[in-house]
Nucleic acid binder design. Structure first.
Lengths: 338, 338
DNA sequence: ATGAAAGCGCTAACAA
DNA sequence: TTGTTAGCGCTTTCAT
């Protein structure tokens, strides 16, 4: 570093106070929406703020208030895979819309297993008021460590084997519906490309699927796991076709994996849905433009992001009696593939 | 708010100083990698930091240092569309890897046209030291406003009609190669699904494409624009087929749009590549598992993210003679679709 | 090469 | 309802 960047920001709170004809405290009260401020004073302060183009210094607020005014979005995925997923994009939009208008910044952090310790140190040092967790895997040491330091946390997606508050889609019921739909079509040899074994989303969708098949008195032995990438969906589909060339339906536990599965089906000359019916999960942006358009289970990921954020902020605000976990509904969307 | 969240973080700099047997100043110097610290003192401080699990309070650092120690990633896209794009995911990974180990946080901000003013006020108030811009559209008022307040900025992707520093893939050359490849296959009626008209990436890829066709003495009149969504790719493909049922090749200016285009081609009974050859752009995660696997132009988006970040940090560090803009190479990846 | 002291701009008691 | 007074934890002169 040859020289360090410095910025000389605009007006301070003191100038706002002067222009408004009140004290710094009053300005602070207005900024923080506190009570005990006369309408007149409030108005004057707002006018002064607008006139001067004032924006409070977050660093000073955090320091004095012993509050970071920021939350972290922790993406715990070694490969950053989830970032490419429309799921993540939707969640991000939801988080953002819930944060809009509040004086809260969103810090993006990616957690590699190697530096989980650093991350925890950072998060425990008051830089953020809470954290949103996404794409948690079963064995992630992050959750217990965060629990230990007492940082308020909400997970997007049920975490395996831990008890932090979470918001999730009703994956079980969604997968159940998928299986029922395929069974109702008269399919008898129904396979599934399941999600990762070490994630609840994988386990839950698989459970729902199995339940649906057992309802229909069908065997649920055709199971291959993928990791929410198109490649893994393709590989799993190849394996399934190899083991059961006669399969007539497949539930792929994520649209993004269904893309790969569809490719393999085409490559092997299977017609969709005539020979093999396919149901996905998510109703992501790829479902409608898949070849053929994908029948899938819809979940509202933006709502998921909003709900996670609401839950975390409510906890930060000291609200009591908050539900430890929330399940969002899913629904079947029928297109051409099944 | 019934109650406000507060956190009582770990050790302060003072305790580190005590344990290390030096003054706060010395600890500060070590933290900031300054000169004039004896090896002995440095060592003692590092030991103390490790022993106490100390992490400096960013708010205090920013306040005292008149520096935010943070940069913003501004996604200027009304719909948040770009978030779902593997392009964005890659850029994010690149940014993150370049930031790793530096004491810099990444703030994620989404800019809606409606609140550009608020955003600019925020950015100009010293909350961040600089900004990375992504997915800039031609008419975005953000860029001139940012230029005016003098915030260091680097754009990912060439901005239209403004002169901020940027890093971009060599879109022109990439598209040129795509066109040449299709021409070299003997295709005569070559169409293109171009990117948005109001983005340089759209214009540049279209220019390269046209140049390639003119080299081959072919007409480049079959042009439809999309907006980097699969749906738009499908719609553009339909239009092209309607206008020119005899087309035998198409260059789709983004893999993510090619997904939609491929669906339409299949639906209309066109075999790929026998009847219509398809070349995409990006070599995103979808290219290899498209139906059929997509021949495409590869760009290294992670490198793009790293380079943008490097460029911004170098400027913040006061380095001189930095290139105003940088172009990253692209390359043709041949798969089955062309 | 190191330490002492003075703030950075704000919020949070407390007093009025 | 409002103003006054201390800090929040760090960086940064300025001495030494």
């Amino acid at each position: 570093m040859t020289e360090t960047a410095k910025r000389r920001p605009g007006p301070r709170i003191e100038e706002v106070a002067r222009v408004a004809g009140v004290s710094k405290s009053t300005v602070s009260r207005v900024i923080n929406d506190e009570q005990y401020v006369s309408a007149k004073a409030r108005e004057a302060v707002h006018a002064a703020i607008a006139q001067l183009g004032y924006s409070p210094n977050q660093a000073a607020r955090s320091l004095a208030g012993n509050r970071a005014n920021a939350i972290a979005l922790v993406v715990s995925e070694p490969t950053g895979r989830v970032l490419s997923d429309p799921f993540f994009a939707g969640v991000l939009r939801g988080i953002h819309s819930e944060l809009a208008g509040r004086h809260m910044q969103l810090l993006l952090m990616m957690s590699q297993p190697a530096d989980t310790g650093d991350l925890v140190t950072y998060l425990s040092s008051g830089h953020v008021d809470g954290a949103l967790l996404v794409s948690l895997h079963g064995d992630d040491p992050l959750v217990p460590m965060l629990a230990e330091i007492g940082l308020p946390v909400v997970s997007g997606g049920r975490p395996l084997g831990t008890t932090v508050p979470f918001v999730d889609a009703d994956n079980f019921t969604g997968a159940l519906e998928a299986a029922r739909h395929l069974a109702s079509l008269g399919r008898k040899r129904i396979a599934t490309v399941a999600g990762p074994k070490d994630m609840a989303v994988g386990a839950d969708r698989l459970s729902g699927f199995k339940r649906g098949l057992s309802e229909a008195r069908l065997s649920a032995d055709l199971v291959e796991h993928g990791d929410f990438t198109p490649e893994s969906g393709a590989k799993a589909m190849e394996l399934l076709l190899c083991k059961a060339p006669d399969l007539d339906a497949v539930f792929v536990a994520a649209d993004i994996m269904a893309l790969g599965a569809l490719q393999v089906l085409h490559a092997q000359g299977k017609r969709v849905p005539e020979d093999v019916a396919v149901v996905g999960f998510d109703d992501s942006v790829f479902a409608a433009t898949a070849t053929p358009p994908l029948t899938t289970i819809r979940q509202d990921v933006e709502e998921l992001g909003r709900t996670m954020t609401w839950r975390l902020l409510a906890e930060l605000a000291g609200e009591h009696g908050l539900p430890p976990s929330l399940l969002l509904p899913t629904s079947l969307v029928v297109r051409s593939s099944a």
